Computed example of a mutant assay.
Amino acid sequence: MNIAFPVPDEVPPDLYGRRERDPLLRVLERVMNAHMHPLRYRHRKDVAGESIDRSFPVVVVDRAVEAHDENVMGFALAAPDGGELPLWRAGAHIDVETPSGLLRQYSLCGDPADSRRYRIAVRRIPDGIGSVEMHDEVVLGTRLTIRGPRNAFAFAVPGHGSTADHLHFVAGGIGITPILPMVRLAHRLGVDWTMVYTGRSRDSLPFLGELREFGDNVTIRTDDVDGTPSAAVLLEGARSTSAIYACGPMPMIGTLDRGVARGTEFHFERFSASPIVDGVQFDVELARTGETVTVPADRSALDAIRTVRPDVAYSCRQGFCGTCRVPVVGGTDGMLVCTERTQGERVVLDI
């Protein structure tokens, strides 16, 4: 989820400079183009009525462990012919179709100025079918199909789409992936910024080596040394005039949400759906088998269905990607089983 202020459709030329050979200016020019690309895409689809398939093949050209506990694997993806890939901007993600056909979403954590490579990082989850497959089956030379890039976590530069004069980033574990390109862009532009990076232990945190170049701008806080961070700890370095960007698990986002002052520009992306509040237990019938699954008041239909159908398709668990939409028998619309539920009524799904 992202509650950021909207980014303007035009970026002032004095931010990105003229078309010169200077490397920094080339980087900034590419950032501007990445910003404008999704606007062009929306215009073509809405005005011309075109149906555009944004899926395309890539090949794994690099694979490396990114955390000392070896549970985070980084992948570099390139076009099979070595050509340029679609533009993207900080905060974007891609849908990755694994060799077995699963669809998973991963944030782009590389450099938007690199037009020929995407980089993603995948944390291995012991019972996560998709992450285990990415770690064990996806090797150098593996061909994948991806879709996107899409951006539900847009980054606004202070003075150009943001009224803040300082940026404060908060990343929890693998939540560093969408934050890292934002940090790099802020650093290149000379924007005043700070960051708190938290996780279970230093060994579990990916990209620590890359963050060293930013020196004291980055503060590391780990549970095994410092305990579970409070809002005050997570907001260390932030000001009343800061825009805050955060990505991480729901408890961290919840802590921040309670600690951020009213009126603060707060942008966030979370790993899972919001906690279920005042839920009601209901039954789901799987039409193709006749099985009935009871969905507890505090769990999603997706969680309950996966106990008997672990291969049911899902991706973001937040309701915006649509991967887990399942046809309702006798209904006109499908049900997003990761977030939608009934008020106790039985529902029959085409599973």
Rank of each mutant, 00 (worst) to 15 (best):
L39S: 06
G259F: 08
R119D: 14
F266G: 02
T177Y: 11
R202N: 09
N71C: 14
E210G: 13
V11P: 04
L144Q: 12
A273Y: 03
G49C: 03
E265I: 06
Q318I: 15
E29A: 09
D95A: 09
V65R: 11
V132N: 15
T307F: 14
L205V: 12
I253M: 10
F207D: 10
E20T: 08
L302Y: 00
Y41Q: 14
F266K: 01
R147L: 04
A273F: 03
R309V: 10
H160G: 00
D95W: 06
N71A: 13
R54Q: 01
A231C: 06
P251W: 00
L256G: 03
I129H: 15
C324F: 01
E133H: 11
R26H: 09
A238F: 00
Y41T: 06
A64Y: 13
V27W: 09
D224I: 07
F268Y: 10
R202G: 12
D226P: 01
P158T: 12
V328I: 07
F207K: 08
V139G: 08
L108T: 13
G263P: 07
G130V: 09
T145S: 07
V31T: 10
R188D: 15
D53A: 00
R30G: 04
W88V: 01
A64R: 14
V337K: 02
A121M: 08
A246D: 02
W193L: 04
S100Q: 12
R306Q: 08
P57E: 03
E29N: 10
L140K: 13
L234C: 02
E265N: 09
A121C: 11
S55W: 02
V329K: 11
E345L: 09
G290P: 05
G74K: 05
T255I: 02
R188V: 00
D303F: 14
I244M: 04
